[in-house]
């Protein structure tokens, strides 16, 4: 059910250009899934296999199944992420099971942060985080191309300055 997505409800802004994330993010996240699955499978299978009996090592299949599920989930989640710059605010929509849509007016932005960890850098990714005076505002866009992240940061700062409002 597509409740809440603007293109179905006839809400102003339906004609907006939505942008997605870089496919490299799927690779990063899948890598994480694989690493964690392997670690968990070994942690479960090895002690059971050695101490209780080789048959019990089959329990290591549980993390593997979870990993396989996670493998698929990563792509679904990646597909759900999108953001758009409207005239006065930034709209971020994300999540498959837990859907969340965030509207942050440019004038309310206190700080725009572009960060890129070692793994992210290796895959040519960066993420942008927006802060407002409310700590609950949870506006992060992961998996952006560094150039796009910088463009977004500059544009958001520029728009934020033009529309700046106090508390």
């Amino acid at each position: 059910m597509e409740t809440g997505s603007p293109d179905e409800t006839g809400i102003p802004g339906a004609e907006l250009v939505w942008r997605g994330l870089q496919p490299a993010l799927i690779r990063v996240r899948r890598l994480l899934v694989v690493v964690w699955t392997a670690v968990l499978a070994v942690a479960v299978g090895l002690p059971l296999g050695l101490l209780v009996g080789p048959v019990w090592a089959a329990f290591a299949l549980a993390p593997l199944a979870l990993g396989a599920w996670g493998w698929r989930l990563v792509e679904r989640n990646w597909r759900s992420w999108r953001y758009t710059e409207r005239a006065d605010d930034l709209l971020i929509s994300r999540g498959v099971l837990w859907r969340e849509e965030t509207v942050v007016p440019y004038g309310r932005m206190q700080l725009v942060e572009v960060t890129s960890g070692p793994v992210e850098r290796r895959f040519g990714l960066a993420h942008v985080q927006l802060h407002t005076a409310a700590a609950a505002t949870d506006a992060t866009i992961p998996g952006l191309d560094p150039a796009e992240a910088e463009r977004l940061r500059d544009r958001l700062t520029e728009l934020g300055e033009a529309r700046s409002a106090g508390l």
Binding site: G4, L97, R99, E101, T102, V103, V104, P105, T132, A139
Partner: peptide, 11 residues
Amino acid sequence: KVQSVRLSQGP
């Protein structure tokens, strides 16, 4: 006084 608006929906 609104800083940001969010919509959320669980399964």
